[in-house]
Nucleic acid binder design. Sequence first.
RNA 1: GGGUUUGUAGCUCAGUCGGUAGAGCAGCGGCCUUUUAAGCCGUUGGUCGUGGGUUCGAGUCCCACCAAACCCA
Length: 534
Amino acid sequence: MSTVPTSSPHSPNDSTQADKSDLEGQMRDRRRIIESLRQSGQNPFANDARPTHQIYALPASRQEEVASLPLENELAADAPRYAVAGRLLQVNEMGKAKFLFIRGDRGAMLQLYLKADVVEAFALSNQLGLGDFVLAQGPLFRTRKDKRALRIESLRLLSKAVRPLPGKALQDGPKVTDEDWRYRQRYADMIVHPEVADVFRKRATIVREIRRFFDERGYVECDTRMLLSTNGGAAARPFRTHHNALDLDLSLRIATELDLKRLVVGGLDRVYEIGRIFRNEGLSRFHNPEFTTIEFYEAYATYENLMDLTEELLERACVAVNGTTTIDYQEHQGVRLQRPFRRATMRQLVKEARPDAPIADGACTDAEYAALPGYARSVLGDKAPSGYGHALVALFEEFVEKSLVQPTFVCEFPTEVSPLSRRNDRDPRFVDRFELFVIGKELANAFSELNDPDDQRARFEQQVSQKASGDQEAMDYDEDFCRALEYGMPPTAGEGIGIDRLVMLLTNSASIRDVIPFPQLRPETTSPAENESK
RNA sequence: GGGUUUGUAGCUCAGUCGGUAGAGCAGCGGCCUUUUAAGCCGUUGGUCGUGGGUUCGAGUCCCACCAAACCCA
């Protein structure tokens, strides 16, 4: 901590020479006040005063109710008293009286009216700075401008803010525009931008609604392993770590899939997990290395049943935060999260976007199977993959994905890209799988589960050979999972939904960073010297 | 990894053709006993992202680097 100043708290001019910056000067002044309060026997970080009321629960919280409050000169001697606490955000001073604006939980605001004849409180108010926490006690009245105010009869400082706020919290317009700063100092960002917390509240509502949805249907919530010695369930590179006592290399899970299916084998016919997963890949508006998914599995269901379930779930989550199923997302107006969503096969969608593609109208023909990779190479160039399945997906990603603004179930994925899905009974080159796309982004991934242990072994072997030929996102061979399947897994369908992207959609957030309190950033550089050394 | 844009006071931003760094808010000192996210007077605060270069002279022009945002891969 810095040195304790010995000079009077009201003579800031004597320190200007030592000030390295305006900010340091302001912080020094605030520390002086702390010292001065301590010397006069007051605790600048008191914890012996509790509010009797939350600001959001006070009477006349709505403007049309303010008329029920008395004017100040009409206040009865026995008018009810309220002790409320909050952060000081604004002071309007007018000589021997002042208005103080404080904010409590849920962003609720209250203005306090303080007159000079409340001597002790008035003296304290001159020691307050924006950002401080205070507790005020007194009756409520209606001002001449028909606003609710609490007349201060006593005032306490609860916690002194040493660091000043970065902007004027209550002003209109931009306060801080440096996005990097906003994410790094989210705590301060939230003070001046209360709408940030609104998104987090909505996120909590969405998660609560999802949990309720599955609980109502008899699903069991489980927390499975995050630390694994073989990793699978998705195409992604994991984070590596090490367990010292076991001297064991482990990785952080990239999906919850395999453990949840083990639980289905064990008899949990309906099971789900809402949890954090970790993928060692780049950052973008839609990617954070740690993010939250829900995966759920239901025995005796098919991926088609899950489409119905998903429609109902999304409708409900949307209504819970927006009160309607039709929403706007950024530049996309009128996104309708209302049953039924469109259902189409990936082949059908590619054919629509590229009518010249050699894709058959009905089921996939041998001619199509043979011709598509060549077609992909002719339109995508050398980056086009050689096999049918990867080529189809590449065409889908290039020509279709972005156009799927309204919710669309994309069905029948190629087997090569779906190592955990059950093969289609009519055509084993495809699997019983869908992904749900909204606003051009994948929101959910679901399939009827592969429960044939020998087929699963073959798929893992394929993954291993893909890994050997350089695919760092291929899965590990999970022998224990195959052993589990050998005990028999009922016919099951399962699905994963990206919670962060869902929250983005339902709160009209442009970046995943806006729905995650502390998104991943580069380490903060603390000094120019460090920059030079790089 | 590539492209575009940005970086000036605690915050939001100006800064013209290269010629002594500005405003509003916050802070500080005054005035004001019902303000509206006040009003009025005064005032502190700057290594112009960092480092080099061109120039008599660089916030401004050039180069490199750092950081961020967006787009692309």
